[in-house]
Amino acid sequence: MKPAPLRYVRPQSVAEACAALHAEPEAKVIAGGQSLMPLLNFRLAVPEVLVDLAGIPGLRGIVVAEDSVEVGAMTTQRALERDADALAACPLLALALPHVGHTTTRNRGTVGGSIAHADAAAELPCVLACLDGSVIVAGQGASRQQAAAGLFVTHLTSALAADEVLTAVRFPVLADSWRFAFHEVTQRHGDYAMTMIACAADVVAGRIVEVRIAAGAIADRPLRLTEAEQAVVAGVELGEVRRIAEASIEPSGSPHAPAAYRRALVGALVVRCLEQVLAA
């Protein structure tokens, strides 16, 4: 229950961090550490070097622009949760952030860390997938933008190279006609979710003309339920949308949430989200 011996480095710039990662293949980035530290304590992760991003200026901060909320990678989840302008511009964040761990982990856990960690049951990756957001990634060469589609490869694995550093997360700002919903089921508030659904819908005259539905904790990465999305826009009634959503996934089971239960939860939460955006 203690980390294995490791060496800790605290670079002063993103370039220095990338160089440290490049030089040491068994290095791992630490941001807030709220997901990584349990893995270190259990010795499920045994990196030789920890590269802490906390000393790098410029990685904290939130910029609310017309088309996106750009969040510096080292911004804590709690800081984002307290930024009224960011939450107003991106209401799905306001709905999802209270589900991310507990206040004590959000005090230290970062937005960039949660995305880069790519936990299949984490809320922020599900939100980013739902909104078709993106991340800014720095490496040995020029920095690049990586879309959420393609970012989450599998559980705990993102498309970032070993010597790349995620520097910012961009959550798109949608038009005023969009409505949002986020629901998850956990055994206790703050626990890992058994299933979560994030939903963004463009509602015009009481009808959904465009919708994005993302599901978390049912596969090795957040999934967009595209068949259900198409059915909603085609005007299919909710009971049938539920059936389509449930048929479109192949959830894994766990002792607390067998696959059939998880499948039923997906259907129920999709309907709950859609009813909520239609009623808003």
Binding site: M1, Q34, M37, P38, A54, H102, T103, T104, N107, R108
Partner: peptide, 25 residues
């Protein structure tokens, strides 16, 4: 491993779990 909360302390005013932080951090 960050579940029970017994080790919570304030770091620069913010309540955090001291088992999920290295002293060097």
């Amino acid at each position: 491993h960050g579940v029970c909360g017994a080790c919570t302390v304030l770091v620069d005013g913010a309540a955090v779990r001291s088992c999920l932080v290295l002293a060097v951090q």
